[in-house]
Design a protein around this nucleic acid. Structure first.
Length: 274
DNA sequence: CTAGCAACCTGAACGC
DNA sequence: TGCGTTCAGGTTGCTA
């Protein structure tokens, strides 16, 4: 499910339900996720939720003694449910609250994670992350610098979490299309002007998706159960072989970094280095 | 350092 | 109807 917009939509969805709530207990039915759920998470009880934050695609639930880190992987989603609602298949973890509700994590493929970060420390997974795309930390200059010496495809650089976080496969495809950049173009051969445009478009595209409530894909629904509807806006992702919205040319589909990559051969020409 | 890719896991879709 | 193959939104951590 989640690219950054979906994670942010989840954060916005659960935050009002968790803010100021008292966490009474953590129940794990399946601790083997991407990593084994650490004891510290299960030991949390009688702690107030101070804040619900997001860093890259990680959600952080701040408690007085540290933070519970949630990652949704490919198939994870969160719901706020009555605590006594019977858990279904792949409902791996519940955070129980004093008001009788529970935050329930469901993750079919178990690529997600539940981790612990002690107060005042930084989890190693968060330490290496690049700038947030929607803040002033991510600029044309940082993108241009990251691309300078990289011979790998611009799409792979854009999806590199050291360069900028939160740009997953869908939005990498979409942003490159809107910027008129061929995904296979070596990063160092993309002009500074194009990279500046790409930076702006990444911000606009992610922001628009958040506003519209996240992309609906096969296993995503918003926290309150209403589906998002951004999928209708996708211009290239999932449209290989179909006509380009600009020029009617059949969209090409290739694999880059083992991920499906769709582009218009006419609107996103592969340029020869001069 | 970069680059390529196997791995983690389940289920849906498709071809025969 | 069943079986085998391929693919899926992410990310780490090998190997060269």
């Amino acid at each position: 499910m989640p690219e950054l917009p979906e994670v942010e939509v989840s954060r916005l969805g659960i935050s009002p339900h968790l803010q100021g709530q008292q966490l009474t207990k953590v129940v794990a039915r399946q601790r083997q996720l991407r990593w084994w759920v650490p004891d510290e998470v299960l030991q949390q009880q009688q702690q107030p939720i101070l804040a619900v934050r997001r860093r890259a695609k990680y959600l952080l639930l701040d408690l007085p003694g540290g933070s519970i880190i949630l990652h949704l992987g490919m198939s994870g989603h969160l719901k706020v449910v009555p605590a006594d609602l019977a858990p279904g298949k792949h409902d791996h973890l519940d955070l129980l609250f004093a008001n009788g509700t529970a935050l329930r994590l469901n993750d079919t493929r178990r690529f997600g994670a539940v981790l612990w970060q002690a107060q005042g420390e930084q989890h190693p997974l968060l330490a290496q992350l690049g700038p947030e795309p929607l803040t002033a930390d991510f600029t044309a200059e940082t993108l241009i610098q990251a691309c300078q010496r990289r011979g790998s495809a611009i799409k792979l650089v854009l999806m590199d979490n050291h360069v900028v976080v939160g740009v997953g496969n869908i939005y990498a495809n979409e942003a490159l299309f809107k910027a008129g950049i061929n995904p296979q173009q070596p990063a160092r051969d993309v002009s500074a002007d194009k990279l500046a445009l790409l930076c702006t478009i990444v911000k606009e595209t992610l922001t628009a998706a958040i506003v519209q409530g996240g992309t609906t894909l096969r296993d995503f629904s918003q926290v309150d159960g209403k589906p998002g509807y951004f999928k209708q806006e996708l211009l290239v992702y999932g449209r290989g072989g179909q006509p380009c919205v600009n020029c009617d040319t059949a969209l090409s589909e290739v694999r880059l970094g083992q991920r499906s990559t769709v582009f218009c051969p006419l609107c996103q020409p592969l340029l020869q280095k001069n």
